[in-house]
Design a protein around this nucleic acid. Sequence first.
DNA 1: CATCGTTGTTCCAACGATGTAAAGACCGAG
DNA 2: CTCGGTCTTTACATCGTTGGAACAACGATG
Lengths: 329, 329
Amino acid sequence: MATLKDVARLAGVSVKTVSNVVNGYSFVKPDNRARVEAALEATGYRPNLGARNLRRGRTGFIALVLPELSIPYFAELAGLVIAAAQEHEWNVLIEQTFGTLSGERLALASLGPHLVDAAILSPEALQVEDFQLSVPAVMLGEHAVDVPLSRVGIDNVAAATFAVRHLISLGRRRIAAIGANPQRGTAALRLEGYRAALAEAGLPFDSSLVVPALNYHRADGAAAMKALLDMRNPPDAVFCFNDLLAVGAMRTAAERFVRVPRDLAIVGFDNNDESAYSSPSLTSIAPDKAAIARAAVDLLRERAGSPDIELDDVQTPFSLQVRESTVTR
Amino acid sequence: MATLKDVARLAGVSVKTVSNVVNGYSFVKPDNRARVEAALEATGYRPNLGARNLRRGRTGFIALVLPELSIPYFAELAGLVIAAAQEHEWNVLIEQTFGTLSGERLALASLGPHLVDAAILSPEALQVEDFQLSVPAVMLGEHAVDVPLSRVGIDNVAAATFAVRHLISLGRRRIAAIGANPQRGTAALRLEGYRAALAEAGLPFDSSLVVPALNYHRADGAAAMKALLDMRNPPDAVFCFNDLLAVGAMRTAAERFVRVPRDLAIVGFDNNDESAYSSPSLTSIAPDKAAIARAAVDLLRERAGSPDIELDDVQTPFSLQVRESTVTR
DNA sequence: CATCGTTGTTCCAACGATGTAAAGACCGAG
DNA sequence: CTCGGTCTTTACATCGTTGGAACAACGATG
């Protein structure tokens, strides 16, 4: 692999002159510049990023800390973050926490300023005292505890209200919620939105219709739905706090021969790619994931430069994708 | 951020002695070691990986080049590769190519030895002449052109044969295939396995039942299925070359009120997480993804050390997950 | 007590890049 | 022909780390 030294020798100039050419420094004589450029071409020189970053005091990487890539929402988001970061010459380092406290602590601990310039976090279990980060960071979504970090995400309360309002507008009256979880910040907000929509329509809040979910996997949704269908007076609609829960719920409904949407309308949250193709297809709150990714990276770019610690809260847009799980064709 | 120098000053020893302690060098006097360790603790020292790797001539990163994280198979695989790499103190850099030739070339070009120690590739469109890699690499799956790289993956012909044999054993006689594509190495092999199973059972090969797919997304599967159902004499089973195609096909079947599996049995390939939860759930060839990830990383570890260029072909195990899309409960 | 081998420590150079300061080249003005 | 200023290039130090050689201390050996 060619180094600056090799190029310099070939071009017959000093190492620094080559460096100047590579970095676009103005004052280089045209003929020297030409010779250097020819030498760069001939050697196929590529800067050694490690060395450059060592000298410059940055790493060229940002970390993306998330529960698991096998969760479609995070996989899709990760793809978009990588694309957004690439535009600013950042490489993305993905750390999986598996949603556990120890996993999250481990990931955070490995995040020194020597490894990454900044971080995007999607924590689930972290405690306040864990947020002693050594690099600038933004948070995606909401967290259960108040945390001294800027955040990017949609307005969860508004989105949840919107979703439940949709169910109410379809004439549903016994509307369940799957996904309550005191550990999760977003869960509390979505529950709040759910209650707000009920209240607004003058419907009673029935806590037996609120089913908690420890994790947000398909299996949890399926189990929760079983519990709901076993009730004496089962619901006529369910608001699931993410699409995986909804897919699980739909699966259980199918197994029990409950017709969706006729007997039971279902709304999800996240609008995973797969949700458009299930049968029936899933109505879902659709956050603008690309906007989230872009906003997070942009925020880090500001933060990485100046050390002012002004907390931001960037609200990205969302919409409701209405599909067959709530409305018949 | 503390450096070796800071620790050395605090402990009253030389920088190298601290380095020796950090790297577990044996011959350090117990009391010095203790003082150094205390100083390490006190300063919260973390080695600067950039500097270390610069000195050691490695980067600590491997690249994972894949089409897109929003494709579940690759997302799941990426998660497993990250986990496997972590065990060997490697960080993973994910590059998305979006399955295009230009995207793949771009990704490969950015892969110098200064950035990564090795690479795991999942190419789709690359030509032979593109494989001038400057770092050791392994390939996942099969490629259309013969390529001078070791590979890891399942036996595609055998797996496809196995899948189609399953359909035949259920009494299906007009078995279609979705996903033929001359660009893709795996497509040719899966088609070969499909033909082999037909031949073995004495069934005729009908090229009108082989539907090509440009991409392997859900939409492509849906479109292909429409074409099949529009035939004068539609098939009674479909073998889809991946689960996304199968999900799309199932969607179309549902829209056309074709009963699965009674009227039409469907088998997929990849066994995505979502396939266990669709209605009906999807029978699918299940490659051992964790084994693939582990094998790929292990292979790179060997390659990264010695420069011997002996090509390997690691066959990982697979199984057939039989579910409702082929067998009624 | 000179010599030796083992153990423990330090110094120096190097990895490849860039910032700084100083030196060199060049020009026009006085 | 000198001076002062603008360009242009270079030498050197530096980022944080580690390998290698050199050196120092030590008890054991002859």
